[in-house]
Design a protein around this nucleic acid. Structure first.
Lengths: 208, 208
DNA sequence: GTCTCTGGATAGCATCACTATCCACTATCT
DNA sequence: AGATAGTGGATAGTGATGCTATCCAGAGAC
């Protein structure tokens, strides 16, 4: 498959394909001469994954590179890959994480997690993100929203069991690795979309 | 309160405060002279809301303007505000929504929602986002992930009841309006952070 | 033998969220 | 009263990001 065909079949503009090659998201094709290379199914598949992560998951190019680097690294163990996906998906926080309020929120986040008996890495990025939200709610005087935390934790725990079970059910490592990445990123997209739809329905039926 | 004090108390750099004023996110203070104006508590509160939406919720400045416009518009009814918040939070999709695959995914999204008995606006933005994710999973050959949809739908429905109930419990309209916005945006941040933590915990305990 | 296409390199562009500078003027401090 | 700092308003500049466009010498296809 020539590069132009790869572009045509995938629907990704040719200059963009070249850009992804330059950025190291897409591995080079097998060279056939000084100015010709051959791409095949794997490249198409990878290209589609890249687009899904960017378009649907909202990852940055740098984030995609990070995730794919872990995917391609056979040494990275499965659970580590999950952390990498989480970090890549997170992007850069713009919140101020040095105030007293934030530190208190961060401690509260750790408490919520500990109360559930969850064993997570002490420096998990997601703990900081949770603290960001808690701190913001407190600053805005909306502490009553924090009563929702328990429900969120319970729901996500149940979902996580299904998600992890599904991925582990795939026998092969390659399938599991791709499952972790797509499950993390696209699963999140599905979950938030459904949450919005559920809110719309519920507020329409419950509102006076 | 002078503008410099507003900046100092909120921790937002003064040029940025001026920028938000220019962009119409923050209403002008009460003018005291040709080059002096007075800001008070409401401005500080609004400024904190802006930062929470941008920093924690990841909204763009245009999205914030949209949300705040609806917040300030007394005519906008409550449930309409929810839609506005959802649209603002969504940003621009970069996915191609004209392919046959996407249209099929879109129909599937509508089916999932209908099967639950949810009554949502036929053109809800979230339906498109859900379709984006479904289409991407199919393209990547990860259709088994779609079996998670039911669990997501059930969980979000239960959560939505709690969320909407909480906001409706606030008597006053002003409180409800701010509750919708913060609940939508910051609630999503909390939910996704907890999902990641739950995944980390579960994968650590379930993995071989 | 012409015409298209290739890989590789470099440069350009549009958007976004600030950030910096300048200005004439006015509080405020001493 | 005079020095200093701060103000609203305007305009311009910045750095990051994700592409797009153009050019090139060389190869392949008809």
């Amino acid at each position: 498959m020539k590069i132009s065909e790869l572009s045509r079949v995938s629907g990704v503009p040719l200059p963009t394909v070249k850009y992804y090659l330059r950025e190291g998201l897409l591995p080079a094709g097998r060279p056939l001469g000084r100015n010709q290379a051959d791409y095949h199914e794997a490249h198409l598949r990878r290209l589609r994954l890249i687009r899904a992560l960017i378009d649907v998951g909202g990852l940055s190019v740098a984030g995609v590179r990070q995730v794919l680097g872990a995917v391609d690294d056979d040494v990275v163990p499965g659970h580590h890959l999950l952390g990498t996906a989480h970090e890549a998906i997170a992007g850069v926080s713009r919140a101020d994480r040095s105030t007293a309020g934030w530190l208190a929120a961060r401690a509260e986040a750790a408490r919520v997690v500990a109360a559930r008996g969850w064993r997570v890495h002490e420096r998990a990025h997601a703990l900081d993100q949770l603290a960001d939200a808690i701190a913001a709610l407190r600053e805005l005087g909306q502490e009553d929203m924090l009563t929702l935390l328990d429900g969120y934790a319970e729901a996500t725990e149940r979902l996580a069991r299904q998600e992890v079970g599904l991925v582990l059910a795939r026998g092969d490592r390659a399938g599991m690795v791709e499952g972790v990445v797509t499950g993390t990123v696209l699963g999140e997209a599905m979950l938030t979309a459904l949450r919005r739809l559920a809110q719309e329905h519920t507020s329409a039926t419950m509102a006076p």
